[in-house]
Amino acid sequence: MTSVTRTSQLRGANAELSGLAAPGRVALSATPPASAMTKLLQWLLGVSLLGAVWALVTFDLLGLSLPRTYREVAWPMPVYLLVSFGCYSLATVGYRVAIFNDCDEAAKELQEQIKEAKEDLRKKGLKM
């Protein structure tokens, strides 16, 4: 009926990815693994860490007397990051819209099955 179907397995891979809230696998019956942090907090933590590093380098807060070039590179970094993330988002969404499958076949198949079903159901005595 349907052609080969690709299926995928997703086993909470993101928990490891985030590195923040990876409570490890917990027995299924147990109560929720008191998921340490909400996504909001994870984001805040991530952003403030990045921000702290950025401030340290840009304003040389620790008095490390870093080379001037470091500071010059670091200073506009947040804007670069934002812009590239924006571009990435637009490109990704655009690409995914473009490759979104139109299931014409499925619609056709359904239409035919609807006909078949109606006929069969009428024979079985269904009054619509």
Binding site: S3, T7, S8, V93, R96, V97, C103
Partner: peptide, 24 residues
């Protein structure tokens, strides 16, 4: 609907865009 042979029927560009955007 978003992977492999998955997909939709009867959606215009706008609806696809909203769906993909919201999903992203």
């Amino acid at each position: 609907r978003y992977q492999g042979n998955g997909g939709v029927y009867g959606w215009d560009l706008r609806r696809k865009l909203i769906s993909r955007g919201a999903n992203f």
